[in-house]
Computed example of a mutant assay.
Amino acid sequence: MDMDLNSDLGESFGAWRMGDDATMLEVVTSANVACGFHAGDPTGILNTLRAAASRGVVVGAHVGYPDLVGFGRRNMDPSSAELVADVVYQIGALQGLATAAGTQVRYVKPHGALYNTIAYDKRQASDVIEGILAIDPSLVLMGLAGTPVLQWAQERGLATVAEAFADRAYTPEGSLVSRREKAAVLHDPEIVGQRMVRLVETGKIQAIDGSLIALQADSICVHGDSPGAVAMAQQVRQQLEAAGVSLKSFVAGSSL
């Protein structure tokens, strides 16, 4: 069994430190690197890219709404022209920094509110897909497992990767519980690790009401900005490896 383990990194901004990228990059196989719209400044992003390159971690563009104050977690309704251009702009900026760091951008994972919106909103999903196709159609789109955006992207010719979240609760319908709700974020590394082993072995995950839902995923995310994020990621990795799962990026030829 193979599985990719990813985390959202490069999100520090000036004197504001977010997460422990250096340590997290020792654990994950793919890094979703901020592009400056929801978080991240050029110096910090470049440092994260260099650290990823030195460890052989695959890099993806973590594109989001232009919302530094809200950390990209507030819903927005940009025009199609704006959203397409925003996606192109962010990927292009990260590609330039990645080149300077000795690596390259291999995939795109939208962030926060944009990620959740395009999972079901066909107009905004189409705009994000259009932006990716415009700059580099070889990029892979990472999206929420079991949602329509993955099929829409495939219909346009994009390769896709289905993602599950280690540290987030799920609704019985298979979507993420809103961060505004109690128990939306999980904090016990042992329990989270067990959930991910069951997901990989059975294709099922427990929803917030206790029911089991089917979920086929190619990548597991541990948020880099959550309290105890590194310990969470380490526990997930340890339990998966103990269960015989090989941790490797979904990008062919890449492994950690």
Rank of each mutant, 00 (worst) to 15 (best):
S7M: 06
S7H: 01
D8Q: 06
S12E: 03
F13V: 09
G14W: 03
A15E: 09
R17S: 01
M18L: 15
A22P: 00
N32S: 08
C35G: 06
G40S: 12
P42H: 10
G44V: 08
I45V: 15
L49V: 09
A51H: 02
A53G: 12
G56H: 08
V57N: 00
H62E: 13
V63K: 03
V63A: 02
Y65R: 04
L68Q: 01
N75M: 14
E82V: 10
A85H: 13
D86T: 10
V87G: 02
Q90N: 05
L97F: 15
A100H: 05
A101G: 07
G102S: 08
T103H: 05
Q104A: 12
R106S: 11
V108Q: 04
G112R: 06
I118L: 14
Y120F: 15
D121R: 11
K122V: 14
K122R: 14
A125V: 10
I132V: 15
I135K: 05
P137S: 15
L141Y: 02
M142V: 15
P148E: 06
P148T: 03
V161H: 03
E163D: 11
D167S: 09
P172N: 14
A184P: 08
A184L: 08
A184M: 07
L186P: 13
D188M: 07
V192T: 13
V192L: 11
G193L: 11
G203Q: 11
K204V: 10
K204H: 10
I205E: 02
I208N: 12
I208R: 10
D209H: 09
D209N: 13
L212Y: 03
A214Q: 13
D218E: 14
I220M: 05
I220A: 00
S226V: 13
G228S: 08
A229K: 00
M232A: 04
Q235C: 15
V236F: 07
Q239W: 00
A242M: 09
V245A: 04
S249V: 09
F250A: 06
A252Y: 04
S255E: 14
